[in-house]
Every structure is written in structure tokens, then in C-alpha cells.
Nucleic acid binder design. Sequence first.
DNA 1: CCAAATGATAAAAACGATTATAAAGGAAAA
DNA 2: TTTTCCTTTATAATCGTTTTTATCATTTGG
Lengths: 334, 334
Amino acid sequence: MKDKIDIKFIAGKAQVSPATVSRVLNKSKAVSPELKSRVLSMIEKYDYRPNEMARGLIFQKSNLIGIITPRVANAFNAELISQIEKRANQAHYDVIISNISGNFENEKKAFRIMHDRRVDGIILLHENTPEEMAELQRISDIPIVLASVRVEGSSLPNVSIDDERAAYEATRYLIQLRHMKIAGVFSDSYSAGNLRKKGFLDCLSAQNIAPFALFIGECTFHGGAVIAERILALQEKPTAVFFISDEMAIGAINYFQDHRVRVPEDISVFSFDDIELASYVRPRLSTVHQPVREIGQYATEMLLALIEKRPLYQPQQILPHHVIIRDSCAALEN
Amino acid sequence: MKDKIDIKFIAGKAQVSPATVSRVLNKSKAVSPELKSRVLSMIEKYDYRPNEMARGLIFQKSNLIGIITPRVANAFNAELISQIEKRANQAHYDVIISNISGNFENEKKAFRIMHDRRVDGIILLHENTPEEMAELQRISDIPIVLASVRVEGSSLPNVSIDDERAAYEATRYLIQLRHMKIAGVFSDSYSAGNLRKKGFLDCLSAQNIAPFALFIGECTFHGGAVIAERILALQEKPTAVFFISDEMAIGAINYFQDHRVRVPEDISVFSFDDIELASYVRPRLSTVHQPVREIGQYATEMLLALIEKRPLYQPQQILPHHVIIRDSCAALEN
DNA sequence: CCAAATGATAAAAACGATTATAAAGGAAAA
DNA sequence: TTTTCCTTTATAATCGTTTTTATCATTTGG
């Protein structure tokens, strides 16, 4: 029966008190070189490493950051998570993820679980109503930061682009191409979907154009294909479609192509996010570029500041976006 | 100053001992209905939830599962992670991820950090040498399971397809299409890359065909494009390329198309994984289908069994794969 | 040369839970 | 009435750390 290697064990082997071992480890106070080397060699010999749960208990700190998102496997989210993890690691935090499915109840549950673990902070990658956000905050006073999302009417710190403006610009671009029959495809609880929808609608109404059709779908390739099917089933078809995410757009384009509808010749497609893939499909996607790396890293930065109670000079960070013109949109003959 | 809600606080409010509160929570022993309701109402009132770090310390159990992978953002890995998280959640485990970059030293570091947190088990999504695997096991006796990977010469439990055979079959398919000049593109530490390479080479040599060229690259869209560039720079070009992953293949195809090389007319491409995207790009990818969901869930299942010291009837699970023929390969005229 | 200051170490008290053990109270039996 | 036995509850030890406090030896200053 192997005995477990804890601080007491090491202390015993080095013939010192546990306190001394701790002091050697944390360099908190002077220890005579003699004892120090005894301790160090025993630590080395038994490859002793302090139990983080025990330390967490004392310090009231888990060094854990929680990420909550409705879809880990989404390309944009996955990249965001990757960036967050990277930055968090540098600061000696680990990342724990929660893939919530569907309703807000599940999200609350996930939130509670993270609270139970005494996660030091949480990053949210998706949208909620201001009321829901407030409810989450009521559960626990763990710092929260939104990444790639902004919720109107909520004062939560966030890092994102100006989704509304970006959607406005994208839509204006479609109108400049002389499109009048423009459909919009959105999704519940994906990034800052409501703002994108708002920008889309505002731009149309500013030009006195009525939205040709509005759809709500799942933010996946398949979800995009489903919408495409519904679009092709329409008696009169739109000449352009604005998608809330690249993944949906790609799924839809595939469906179009399968049914002999050419993109962009027959129908133009504009989307959002600019995931790496966007420039690797045919036609290459015209889309709104989000600076994922910066969003992820900055959001983490912000959360760390919040955790360490450093002041937040700019709790609502808007990073620059770019409307990227590639090949998925064509101008309409007049 | 808000006082913190711990078991002692609740006990005080309900005028009972902490032990009684604990018994109510864990239903471990009978508590009189009277006290029980007093305790319950106080728990309700203050929304008390036990500190998981403290419980972990007692039970010597974190209810945490670690995932180590070189690339979270890779589509296949992301889906795998998502499945693992899902299954783990059902069993009341949380998932903590570590994105290791590059060398084995980093992996050891990540492994140690997980050990420090007393993670109950670890799932590895990538390849190592048997020696490296052994070294990891020496660090700590935390149960390890490999997902979508198998390491020859290592007895670690794993769930994967028969990568070697699958690669063999894929290559045979290319040969059946009368291809003789076949290049292979691989990547270090991606899934079961070595086995795929072995299957690829074995099939070629069984037909007395020499591999036309061998490449090593990064397992990303960009990595695929880089290889494509090198392929096009060759004096004599291969007629078919076998890629170790869909992502690389898509990146390469894009590069080919950009340079007026048609797929599959000018060059055939076969790949591996069958990520959702594979059927949403043009040409749609001919590839080896891996049952991601089953791999992820089964690997988790296995890890849970290991954690709970239940016997493992089949420590090396081979799940069925499928060679999927789509549009990225063409037969060669004779 | 003695009191006070300094320095190094050990012992003990936290952190927030669980649980073994002890204690108390009440009912039944002698 | 006293003893015994059960049920219910409280007390205290434990998990693996850190940190405050206490202890002891040594040095320094008057």
C-alpha cells in the first residue's frame, strides 16, 4: 500500500514541520539553507505537488475560469474558447467549459454548478435578455464577462464588435448591389444576434425596403440547409440572404448548389463572423470579420482584472470589425 | 459586510448543528421532520450550496475530467470535446480542457497541472510515442483514456476506429481509380496519424507502388494550403493526394482551385474524419467517416468505469468506420 | 552580564465540508 | 423506580494546505 505524498509526508521525510515545507514552497519566510535543501530534495525525490483543492479552500480561490456557451463545436466559439484558454493559462488559470443546451433553466443550472466549484470568473459566449442576465448575477457575485456579445440594457462588462453597425453596413452593401428582395436569417442565443438583426432591419427601413422574409434557425451547417430549403420553397425567392453566421451560410449555400441555384449568380449570400473556413469554401464568403483572437484575449484580460479587483477603465469594449467582400454576393442588373 | 453562506451559517440560522445540516443534504441518516424542515427552509432562504472544494478534499475526488489536446479549435476535436462534456455532465462531472502547444514538455506540464487539481481522469485526443505515454502514466496514476487514438505498444485503454485499416481501404480505393502517383500528407500528433500513415504505406507497397511523395504539415486549413503549394511546385505532380484530415484537405483544395487546378478532374483528394463540414464543401469530400459521437461518449463511459474502479471488459474498443465516396476523387483514364 | 531584540522553527488554528463517536433524551422492560 | 435500549442530535476529528502564534536559541545593546 503506497502512502500518499502530502505535505506531512514530506515533512516527516525531511524531519521538519509541515509549516517549514510550506515556507520552502512559497518562499514566504526565510528558511535556513540546511533545512531548505533537505526539504527540497525530498520534494524532488517524491515528486510532491501541493493539492490544489486544499489550497483553493484556504485562499478562497479556485484559479478556475468557466466558459458557458450553447455550442462548443461551433467554429467561432471553439476558436474563442481556444483563445480564452490560452490567455487564462498564462495567468495560471484553468478553464472549465459548459455546453448548455436549450433553455435558460439549463443555463442557470450550469451557472450554479460553476458557483459550487467557486470558479473565479465566468465568460459567456452567447446572448440573453437583460432580465436573464440580471437573474444570473443574482445567483452569485462571480464576475462575468461577455465575449463577442453585448446585451442592451445590461451593464455587464463585454468585449465585442459593434454588431448592429456591422450588420447595417453589410445590409447596405447588399442594397448597393441593387438587391431589393433581401431575406434575413437569425438564430436564438447565438452571439449578439439581436443586435445584428436590429442593424439589418434598421438599414432596410432606412432605405424604405421591407424585409423580404425573416427566418429563425439553428446555428449549424444543417440549420443553414434547413433554411435554404424553406427559401427555395418560397413562391417568389429573395435575391439576397443575410445570415447571422458563416456556418449557417455555408450550410445554405451547399443546399442551394445541390438544387441548381447558383451563388452568387442566382442568389447572393452575406454572413457574419469570418471564421477561418469562410475563405476556404466556394464561393468564398463575403462576411463581417470579427477579431476573434483579440475578443477572446481581451475578454479574459478583463475578467482577470475583475477577479483581481483591479479597476476596469473601459467595461464595454468595442473592437473594430471589417466588412469583407469576397465572392458570395453579386450585383443585380438594373 | 455580507457574511458568507456556509454550513455553519445555515446551522446557526436553523438552530441545529452543522452535522444535522449535512445529514439533511445528503440524506445520510434520519433527521426528525421538524429539524429537517427548519434546515430546508434556511437552505432555501439563503440559497445555500455546499462548497465543492471542501467536499472534494474530504472525498478525495474532484468530479473533474481533464481533456488534453493539441488543438481545441479543430473541428473534429471540438465535436469530440462536446460529446465528452455531454456524457460527463450526465454523470455529474465537469470538464476542464488544456490546449497544449507543440512539444511533449508542455504536455507533461499540462498533465501535472491536472494532477494537482486531482482530476479524476484524463482523456487524450492525440498521439504520442509509447515511451511518452509511459512517462505520463509515471507522473500520476490518474486513469487515462485515448479517444480516436490508439498507440501501438501501449496498453492504454482507448476508443477509436481501425485507423490503419481505414487508411488502407482509402488508399486501395485510389488505386482502384487507377491512380499510381499518390502523395500522402500527414501531421505530427494528430489523432492516430501514425497508424493512418502505416495503412497508407502498406497498401501502396502491397500493390508495388512507391509513394509518390510524403509531406508533414499542420493540421489546419492553412496547413493544408501550405502543402498544396508545395505539391504544385513539384516538377511532376501526383494525380491523387491522401490527407490525414478533412481540414487539411479543404485547405489544400482551396489552394488548388485558386491556382486553376481542378479537383477531382486534375487531382483527386481523399481525406479522413468526415467532419460535418466535409459534405458541405465543393467538391464534397470523399473521406473516412469516424463515429465521433460514439467515440466521445464511449471514451467517457470507459473513463468513468476506470474512475469508479469498475472492470473494463474491452479496454481497446474499435468502432466501425466507413469509407465515404463523395466527389473529390475521380478515376484516371487508362 | 543581563534584558531585549532577532531569527528560525514548530505547534495549532483556520478553510468548509463529512462522519465517527459520544451524549442525551425518551420509551419499554424489569 | 431503575435499567436498558433505541433514536436523535451535538461534538470533534478529518481531508491537505497556509498562516498566525508560540517557543526557543542566539545575538545585540546598555
